[in-house]
Design a protein around this nucleic acid. Sequence first.
RNA 1: GUGGCCGUAGCUCAGUCGGUUAGAGCGCCGGGUUGUGAUCCCGGAGGUCGGGGGUUCGAAACCCCUCGGUCACCCCA
Length: 434
Amino acid sequence: MEGVAKSNQADTGNYFQAPIGTHDVLPPQSQIWARVVSVFAERANRFNYGLTITPIFEHAEVFERIGDASDVVRKEMYEFRDRGDRRLALRPEGTAPVVRAFVQHHPTPPWKVWYVAPNFRYERPQKGRYRQHWQIGAEALGVSDPDLDVEVVSLAAGFFLALGLGKTRLLINSMGEPDDRIKYTEDLRKYFLSSGANLGEEFLTRVKENPLRILDAKKSEWQTMIEGAPQLSDYLGDSAKEYFSKVQSGLKALDIAFTVDPRLVRGFDYYTATTFEFVSDDLDAAQNALGGGGRYDNLAQEMGGDPAPGIGFGIGMERVVLALEAQGLAEEIIKDSASLDVFVVDGTDDEVAALVVNDLREAGISVDRSYGGRSVKAQWKLADRSGATYGVMTGESENKNNSVAVKNLKTGEQVEVRREHLVSQIQNSKETKR
RNA sequence: GUGGCCGUAGCUCAGUCGGUUAGAGCGCCGGGUUGUGAUCCCGGAGGUCGGGGGUUCGAAACCCCUCGGUCACCCCA
């Protein structure tokens, strides 16, 4: 967007809605997000990865290190100058800030961290692709060891499994060492120029700028030619080959299914050696990647730090949620997490109901009530709709006995319970339900 | 950035070839006697027909612009 906006949005009254490509996540949908994050956090903890929180914006230079050939940097960054005339950018991806933090703080390797954070990319939104999207991810820095590659992949794979997304497929590849890749890129360019010279301007531009990107293009006219292209695997040096085969045997040992995809090149220039991607067949092919990552052994150095290898991945929150919905798991999660134990109906004019609510809540029982002085009938209606297991009502006659009415909203059965026994009674029934 | 489709109540949608006060289901609020939900019955609130301009005696419907959504490409999570 250059210069002044073409039209005055105030005319249309559309200022007060979420900006294009962003959205609000509200209850009960947000329960799914909470579940996804907690499942990941729990697994990250088991793998001894610690939560890391980096700024939502960084100096633009941090992200420029992820590659000049990538569209994310070239045309999708939310870049701006602050009042001190610093060039800043909203985070477009999760790895660069973590590497920057590693370079800045010199933690003892291996430095194993996880994060959940929003990313920003200025692009046309569509299903599963937004201007603000959340990624949940993990990075392990300072050590180059195939076992660590396997650990990182296994963290992600186990996460999908724990969520019930067992059908997620894992694709892996090796980008080799920088020299291998340079040689390969040259040959690839030569091949494309000789065999695809008549495929148009767009094709030629890409051959020039980043021939690797042609490999995963979706254009059907290009497919035959792509299939005949030289394969990166034939260019790997001995050490890269050995590393990659160790990663593969490590995955096999852990029973993690994968497919080697020689055309998996991924979006950022910083990848070296292992790259991987998790795809879901439940999502449309246009954005079926749930997550992906790889090794970036030169990135720390490019940020001015001492050479330090690293590997990590990012998983798209919105896409995981889409996959859960496609699998029919989303509703289940929402149902599971909406568990109100008690709804209190206030049948008197005093403070008793408020006290009952408070006693139950302090005892760890989830409780709601109505406000605004509604009729008892209306309150029972709300109790029903709240999904609570029990309705508890205060009333004149119960007050005389220091008791409340407790009604099982599923069975309709109702008993009078003395207030000093209420908490233990509800707690016991919760226990037996399990 | 390019192209296709779409925009009527909180939600899902109907609205015939342009023709009076724009409808339904669900949801929401209230009532069906004095303190009891789910079913049933009755009533009610809620709409600048995304916004602006135009054509017309007359526009939710037709045209243009714009905002937004959606899908595809590019690219990516």
